[in-house]
């Protein structure tokens, strides 16, 4: 279960989020809608532990990760996965190495099995040795998802990962990703400004308006 409480963020004296509250049950898929600059990505970055805030608390599965806007647990220890808008795949590593990056503590054979399972799940078997620049945008997006899922995170954050895809591919991929998340039962938050994408992807949709979150 995820609880985000009293989250307030401001940049250079401009308040962008005020007393943001969000509670999700395990396995919930949530979409956070909002205009550009409304603070949705900032909320995600706070939850992930990458940026601090004026105030705010994050509790994941009963463990307090942040309090009063300060992080008690570093990003690398939070067990939170993230898919970035530009995927942020490591350009000098092939697909296999990208996906296995977060599971380096497993044995080689366990890593191999896990990578194969994930590639099968995202429908990209056979691309293990390819480099990110040799993949299409949709393929890169799915590899980024597989990489984020590999360490079995307790929470998955998706920061506008579908925004650069064309409409046709986007819809298909959104549904595919939703299926995968449902199968793995990982609590997820998608940040987007596309209302339709939010509706078909999530169980619950929230909108940031006037610095506050309203859940539909």
């Amino acid at each position: 279960m995820l609880l985000v409480n009293h989250l307030s963020i401001s940049y250079q004296a401009t308040q962008i989020l005020n007393d943001f509250y969000l509670s999700l049950a395990t396995g919930d898929i949530f979409a956070l809608l909002g205009d550009s600059g409304s603070g949705k990505s900032s909320a995600l970055r706070f939850i992930s532990g990458l940026d601090e805030a004026q105030s705010g608390q994050v509790v994941l599965n009963g463990k307090q990760l942040s309090n009063n806007g300060i992080h008690n647990v570093a990003p690398e220890l939070r067990k939170i996965g993230m898919v970035f808008q530009d995927y942020a795949l490591f350009p000098h590593m092939n697909v296999k190495k990208n996906i296995s990056f977060g599971i380096y503590n497993l044995s080689n054979s366990e890593q191999k099995t896990k990578v194969e399972e994930l590639l099968l799940m995202i429908g990209l078997k056979g691309v293990e040795r390819k480099y990110p620049h040799q993949l299409s945008g949709g393929e890169q997006q799915r590899v980024a998802l597989a990489r984020a899922l590999a360490p079995s995170p307790k929470l998955l954050l998706l920061d506008e990962p579908f925004s650069s895809l064309d409409k046709h591919h986007k819809e298909r991929l959104v549904l595919q990703v939703r299926d995968i998340l449902k199968k793995t039962n990982i609590t997820s938050i998608l940040v987007t400004h596309d209302k339709y994408e939010a509706t078909i992807f999530a169980d619950k949709v929230g909108v940031i308006k006037n610095k506050k979150l309203t859940i539909n």
């Binding site: 690398e76 970035f84 977060g102």
Partner: peptide, 22 residues
């Protein structure tokens, strides 16, 4: 790209491994 370093961190990698591997 700072995102790449952040992606590494969110995959459970500490500063030394991020430096050496990314």
């Amino acid at each position: 790209k700072i995102n790449i370093i952040e992606a590494g961190r969110l995959l459970g990698t500490g500063p030394l491994r991020t430096f050496l591997k990314i």
